[in-house]
Design a protein around this nucleic acid. Structure first.
Lengths: 258, 258
DNA sequence: CAGTAACTTCGTACATTGTACAACGTACTG
DNA sequence: CAGTACGTTGTACAATGTACGAAGTTACTG
């Protein structure tokens, strides 16, 4: 009896899929016409091209060339599909040997790797992963990225926290960038149009006496960054702060170096 | 003709709602039975109690005591409703005078205020705000929080970036906490159940030779933090790093102090 | 004071989503 | 060869946001 419980009903099954562990029972009936990876490749391509919202079971089925319900013989449900997509793109990330470089260089590179991931697959930053899928991609990624903190003198618990801190930063930056981009596209208003349309009410309401700092700083920030530039700037600024913050922790340690 | 365009079709209208600017045209027809704030209060209560997913137009209408479609005379659509909810809770945040305290104290307090906001209204961290709703709550919040960087010597552009950096950190931490919590609830599996159910496959697959660092660090991190404690720890660790990172920037400035 | 226009309220309806269910055919097991 | 487990698919259902139009209510216009 096929087990199509609602999303996440059977974590053991998802784990078997993540690790591509074939069901040990002898297979009867017709063989499957596609592979799990066929499904995942199509899903990732679809998500890359048209966003996570475009990945509906029907659209995916059409891309794969099967009926919608057929997908459920490959994947227990949509939640598991997303987990598998995520693990697949994790598995494909580059992992060059950087063991010679100082820790700052390595951490910058890890951040950049993740930033590139989110640039190629913006949807990845949106997928909720409360209990992250412990697949081979996720694990290889974790293993590799932990190595960025080799020779920093951090104990294991702190090392995990430091990595989480860096990754959460990059992910948040990616989400902000995506939100800004989609807000602009969805509304179909350029920033200029928006401002001229709302200027009358805004000038009336943005009282410099009530909000002196906000008006001044907002104007300065808005002028300095034409909106397109903003996400990049936020990333650069934030990454510098992240490194400085970790630097205080690491370089203060006993016999700190690198 | 009432204008019910699809979400975000008319930003000027949303602005008028945010600032409670009454339509200047003379009102004909029956007066509305509720106020916009009635709607928002009900929506926020609903979201606080049952999550953002529970805020459907039908459920909200029932809570307010009207038919679903009636809501559209108060609000152009669901997207605008969310913007208004967000601005409303921003408006309600505490803003005590902390002008005497050193900047670190002020920034810690700002972070804590936001953390409390997300503790009370977890849904707020999930609402996408590409172009943030420039309402009175948002603006008062921005004005107040920028003041945390008074006397730090930061120029206006940097001050905005620094605040964004702090707020994005808190928001990311809140999202992680929410994701972890909901993953646990949805699956209805305790962590213990999950581990014992998956131990057979995991021990087979978590090869210490392939993933030596990951297995060791993961075990250490898992042991140090029983899962319930994890979000708090990540927040404390991250906030310390955020402050250190800003400290390098601020205390290095010309005539730096406070 | 009558007529009209603007406005609120709401019932119905539609497209879209994930996925449960059952029918049907296929291939392996006994 | 019979039985059974499985792959594939058509149909169907509940839930969502919201478009549309009817019905009723109020204020402005002449």
């Amino acid at each position: 009896m096929p087990d199509h419980r609602t999303g996440g009903g059977d974590p053991a099954h998802t784990l078997r899929l993540l690790w591509r562990q074939p069901d040990d029972a002898p297979r009867r009936g017709p063989r499957q016409g596609r592979s799990l990876d066929d499904i995942l490749t199509a899903a990732i391509t679809l998500a890359d091209a048209e966003g996570l919202a475009a990945v509906t079971m029907r659209a995916l089925a059409q891309a794969v060339g099967v009926a919608p319900m057929t997908l459920y013989t490959y994947v227990p449900g949509k939640a598991e599909l997303l987990d598998l997509m995520l693990d697949a793109i994790y598995a494909g990330m580059p992992r060059p040997d950087r063991s010679g470089a100082p820790w700052r260089t390595r951490v910058v590179a890890v951040a950049a790797d993740n930033r590139n991931l989110f640039a190629t697959h913006p949807w990845a930053a949106e997928v909720a992963t409360g209990r992250p899928p412990l697949g081979p991609g996720q694990l290889a990624k974790y293993e590799y990225e932990l190595r960025a903190f080799d020779d920093t003198g951090l104990d294991d618990v702190t090392r995990d926290a430091a990595l989480t801190y860096v990754l959460d930063f990059v992910r948040a930056a990616a989400r902000s960038a995506t939100e800004a981009r989609s807000a602009q596209q969805e509304s179909a208003w350029t920033d200029e149009q928006w401002w001229t349309a709302n200027a009358p009410l805004l000038t009336q309401v943005l009282d410099e006496r009530r909000f002196p700092t906000a008006v001044r700083v907002g104007a300065a920030a808005g002028a300095a960054q034409n909106a397109a530039y903003h996400p990049d700037h936020a990333y650069e600024f934030g990454l510098a702060r992240v490194l400085d913050g970790l630097g205080v922790l690491i370089d203060a340690g006993p016999g700190a170096n690198d």
